[in-house]
């Protein structure tokens, strides 16, 4: 009898977990208040050989979900630019679920209005099938922000940051910050395990850190979140307080880590240097306050580049497999001056 109940408990827990994994709605509007895409009339079907303009373009955009300021700016960029250029955007928020992304991809392939599919992939692998389907259906596919492991023949181009380069730059910047420091122990706050950003930033960092003798003493995922960044940093500090630098793979985790450092009685930015990646407004405020030392920008405003490339591809132009986005490196000293000009 008791056991029976216990099994019920098990069942409920399992069902619950499965529901969490599966029951997100098929499609939701973007949560942000930024207006949903303005539905313009469907482009008039045109004969082949026609030169496409932005007005003829209907873009199906599959966003990862929402995880912070960077992603919000990225989404906003696509929506606003679409309005400016006068193209039709069908936006899909995958709520950070891979299966949502795949099914949205298939829906866009089946949608006769859509001629361009833009994907910000959640995972690096597993895209070959849908990409082949898209190719067969004659859709132009542009990968943005996150690189995928698929033959570059299967999509028009990839536009996004070079995460490895960001990691390498972080290593070089960390070297500068720790110059003269006796020991160079750096801890790493990793993003979602398995995402290309997390993987490549980590490897890139390790490629350049050796130049000045940095060692990564502890590394742990904080899932891009400030709460976890703080908790993980607190645990790091207790396990081994001999830390000179923090490499946070995004701003949120870095800001969380700064709070943990303060609680431990140390001064972030001074006792322990912090480098983060992304360059959101919060990070700039963090630099102005002196908590963060260096922020590597990972530009979220990719839409103009993406739309331009897609138009070229529609008109039959061959594109390079990767078009890097414009990036920048910002330092504490310049933060206050640059901040007002930031748009995200």
């Amino acid at each position: 009898m008791k056991l029976n109940k216990l099994f019920k408990v098990f069942a409920v827990v399992i069902v619950l977990v499965m529901m969490l994994a599966a029951c997100k709605p098929a499609a939701t509007e973007a949560p942000a208040a930024t207006e949903a895409p303005v539905a313009t009339e469907a482009p008039v079907a045109t004969e082949a050989a026609k030169v496409y303009t932005y007005a003829d373009m209907t873009v199906g955009f599959i966003q990862t979900g929402s995880e912070g300021g960077w992603r919000a700016a990225n989404t906003a960029s696509f929506k606003e630019t679409a309005e400016t250029l006068g193209l039709t955007l069908k936006f899909y928020d995958a709520q950070n679920k891979l299966e949502n992304q795949v099914s949205a991809f298939r829906n866009f392939i089946a949608d006769p209005e859509v001629n361009v599919i833009v994907l910000a992939a959640l995972e690096t692998t597993g895209w070959d099938d849908v990409l082949k389907e898209a190719q067969a259906a004659g859709k132009v596919v542009v990968i943005e922000d996150r690189r995928i492991d698929a033959s570059s023949d299967l999509y028009a181009t990839y536009i996004g940051a070079d995460f490895a380069l960001e990691g390498q730059n972080a290593g070089i910047e960390m070297c500068k910050l720790l110059e003269g420091s006796e020991s160079k122990n750096v801890v790493e706050l990793v993003g979602n395990v398995g995402s290309s950003a997390a993987k490549d930033r980590g490897t890139g960092f390790r490629e350049t850190m050796g130049q000045c003798g940095i060692t990564v003493t502890q590394s742990q995922t904080a899932n891009w979140s400030a709460t976890e960044g703080k908790d993980v940093m607190a645990a790091f500090l207790k396990a081994d307080p001999n830390i000179q630098g923090v490499f946070a793979q995004n701003d949120e985790m870095g800001l969380g880590a700064a709070l943990a450092i303060k609680e431990a009685g140390l001064v972030p930015g001074v006792d322990i240097k912090i480098i983060t990646v992304d360059g959101t407004a919060g990070a700039f405020k963090g630099m102005i306050a002196g908590d963060l030392n260096t922020v590597l920008e990972c530009n979220p405003l990719l839409a103009p580049q993406v739309y331009e490339a897609a138009l070229k591809a529609l008109n039959g132009e061959k594109l390079p497999a990767w078009i890097p986005s414009q990036e920048g490196i910002f330092y504490q000293a310049d933060a206050e001056a640059i901040f007002p000009s930031r748009t995200y």
């Binding site: 408990v9 969490l20 929402s66 891009w224 400030a226 709460t227 949120e252 800001l255 919060g282």
Partner: peptide
């Protein structure tokens, strides 16, 4: 508590998946 702890209103991440922790805690 959570937002005061990290000094931000992180609508995306605050409390994410915590309902499961809470349910398991009760169980």
């Amino acid at each position: 508590l959570a937002s005061a702890n990290i000094k931000t209103s992180d609508a995306n991440n605050i409390g994410a998946a915590l309902e499961l922790d809470a349910i398991l805690a009760v169980v």
